[in-house]
Design a protein around this nucleic acid. Structure first.
Length: 400
RNA sequence: GCCGAGGUGGGGUAGCAUGGUAAUCCUAUGGCCCUGUGGAGGCCACGACGCGGGUUCGAAUCUCGCCCUCGGCCCCA
């Protein structure tokens, strides 16, 4: 066997069919974001390694693609996009008028064990609203998240919680125990959580029929209540869920997630919250709210199929090959058009047209060249008619 | 890093606990039968034992290590 280069572990190739689906979803997301007044932002594929260790701690070095360049700089392929966006803010946008609203779509890289819905190169679509910590800002971002999912026909309810409550419950504990508690909650491991101090309190709040009133007894949840009221106004369906832990210390209050069913262990398709990060990167202590959508997981959860536009193949006889190129050019100005590049006979060209699922063949031979009336063959029905180029274009474009 | 299940032409497979033909069949692809009309059929071509070591006269088959895929754990910014 020939020597073959394998695709790097945890990466994927996307063939045209898959890409059409991905582009379709991407376009929907972009349209929604733009209609909500968010502008696209793009950042480098690699950044200083520090950008990510400052945000997430030294431990993430193990899960990151990092390298030293020839100038001795410690760099990393981006494992996520929130930190880069906040770096941009800290670098050059601190005095821009607030709020700032950005969306992004890009690939990220993590050095992890690949498994279902988890790859080493994966795509994130996300949104950041920078400059406000008011309930209106949080509600807008959550509503936007819901509209994004809806744009692909996903009616996943967004789970909304507040870290204020869990933090109030565990405030007396040392950092380590508190972090453990957060992790157990995130995993839903209530058995082990129960053994921690105040674990039972947390469980009773999370599992209460009316978690809001339970939570009210341990912390002020006015902000959350206001957000929820706004979501009601915006007709956004949500579940109050104080079991959303997101243990990272930069989250400031509201947190939310969305899940897709039947996706196995990696079923979280969206996650976000209110946070403060810019000051870690040398900026001011600006508040922000954002979320990231796991694009690849969304693609597994959703079935999208764009309308396939009609496709023409120009089928010339041997004598008409040159002439046919000119015709193809005219057709291409309006319709997807192919011409044979294999030197095939008419019969073989039509065989190919059939197996490649073309909709129409434009057959051109001596008689067509003389009369300028081309033969349009509907490959589905076998019907043929004699038409000029413009008539062909009209006929094909009106075909559904 | 850990546990489990798997890797045979481009895709799908037979063969493997009982080592032994130049590795089976389907499909796809290219060509021909068929010099201007497709979908069928026939013929031809193409093309694989994940990689490396060991045992053996002989390994797809037994054995060891590694790689990769899938499901799960850890982690999840």
């Amino acid at each position: 066997m020939k020597r073959r280069l394998a695709r790097p572990r945890g990466t994927r190739d996307f063939l045209p069919g898959a890409m059409a689906k991905r582009r379709f979803a991407e376009l929907r997301f972009r349209n929604v974001a733009e209609r909500w007044g968010y502008g696209e932002i793009a950042t480098p594929a690699f950044e200083p390694l520090d950008l990510f260790t400052i945000k997430s701690g030294e431990a993430i070095k193990d899960e990151i693609y990092s390298f030293t360049d020839r100038g001795g700089r410690a760099l990393a392929l981006r494992p996520e996009l929130t930190a880069p966006v906040m770096r941009v803010y800290a670098n050059e946008l601190q005095s821009a008028p607030k709020p700032l609203k950005f969306y992004y779509f890009g690939d990220c890289f993590r050095y992890e064990r690949p498994q279902s819905g988890r790859y080493r190169q994966f795509w994130q679509f996300g949104v950041e609203l920078i400059g406000s910590e008011r309930p209106e800002a949080d509600a807008e971002v959550i509503a936007l998240a819901q509209h994004m999912l809806r744009s692909l026909g996903l009616e996943a309810k967004i789970h909304v919680g507040s870290l204020d409550v869990l933090r109030a419950v565990f405030c007396e504990l040392d950092d380590e125990t508190c972090a453990l508690a957060m992790r157990l909650i995130d995993k839903g491991d209530f058995d082990r959580l129960q053994e921690l101090p105040h674990g039972d309190t947390a469980i009773s709040i999370i599992e209460a029929p009316d978690p809001l009133s339970e939570a009210q007894s341990v912390a002020s949840i006015d902000h959350l209540l206001q957000v929820l009221e706004l979501l009601d106004t915006l007709a956004i369906a949500y579940d109050v869920d104080f079991g959303i832990a997101r243990g990272l210390e930069y989250y400031t209050g509201i947190v939310f997630e969305a899940y897709a069913h039947d996706l196995g262990a990696q079923n979280q398709v969206l996650g976000g919250g209110a946070y403060r990060l810019a000051h870690l990167f040398g900026g001011d202590d600006v508040p922000a709210t954002g979320f990231g959508i796991g694009f690849d997981r969304i693609m597994r959860a959703v079935t999208v199929h764009g309308e396939e536009p009609p496709r023409i193949i120009v089928v010339p006889t041997k004598d008409a090959r040159i002439y046919a190129l000119g015709i193809a050019d005219e057709l291409r100005a309006h319709v997807s058009t192919d011409v044979d590049v294999m030197g095939r006979t008419v019969r073989a060209q039509l065989t190919y047209a059939n197996s490649a699922s073309f909709d129409f063949a434009v057959i051109i031979g001596k008689s067509e060249m003389q009369t300028s009336k081309l033969t349009l063959r509907n490959l589905r029905t076998g019907e043929q008619e004699s038409l000029c180029v413009q008539e062909i274009i009209d006929r094909v474009l009106s075909y559904t």
